[in-house]
Design a protein around this nucleic acid. Structure first.
Lengths: 116, 116
DNA sequence: CTATAAAGTGCAAAATTAGGAACTTTAATG
DNA sequence: CATTAAAGTTCCTAATTTTGCACTTTATAG
């Protein structure tokens, strides 16, 4: 399955289902997970449907011992090579563009080689 | 850095920062990302601080072409070996426990080998 | 098959987030 | 160093989420 083909809602839902499976694999109840994560049971319930604040989702991942895996997904942001050449000393804090007229913020996301 | 040492809020914040770095690497503005993701600019702003609904975070990942990476983080939930032996045909939908007294939902998360 | 604990629903109140526009601050191009 | 667009802030309102409790449904151990 291609996660990138899903709608935002469907993607969030998929993440919720994976969280649920992880809980079941650990064989703990929603109530127990809620207690460990320091959130209400309702949060667990709706998180498993993908409807949850990122912070609460994070709390659940931590409680399940899954937090470290996040490094694989959004790896600690290295600075892109293109920028590396540009930046002299300081790191970029804003998106740029040519200055004329107004803007062409890099029209399409650079597919192909990961930008970092 | 150990993600697992962070508080839920700090972890969410870290994810937000990584999202931001990914946007900067793609060199697109918050406004442009918002447009592409179909969300308001405020969502981008607060998402980069880690305060955002999972669904909106998902929308931003999709817009940045990062969705596929999610497979690395919460891998498609395989069924744990322990369960594989138990389940005959159907897959588990609830956490269990011994039946006596009340409950001992697997006291500690099984560290060591990943449960799947 | 039965008993029972886990999971899911409903409701009202409280809290937080999101929308949108206007405005301020600041990075960084030229 | 000046200009200007990106990023961040503020304010008010609308929408959504979160809580907590009670209750219903359902998976599953025995």
């Amino acid at each position: 399955m291609q996660l990138s083909d899903l709608s935002p809602a469907a993607l969030a839902e998929e993440l919720g289902q994976r969280l649920k499976q992880a809980r079941l694999n650990a064989n703990i109840t929603q109530a127990e997970l809620a207690k460990r994560a320091g959130v209400s049971r309702k949060i667990v319930l709706s998180a498993e449907k993908g409807q949850v604040q990122l912070e609460n989702f994070a709390a659940l991942l931590l409680a399940l011992g899954l937090a470290e895996q996040l490094n694989n997904f959004i790896p600690k942001p290295q600075i892109s090579p293109i920028q590396l050449q540009k930046l002299q000393g300081k790191k970029r804090e804003r998106a740029s563009g040519s200055r004329a007229g107004s803007n062409q913020p890099s029209d399409a996301i650079d597919e192909g080689e990961p930008s970092w």
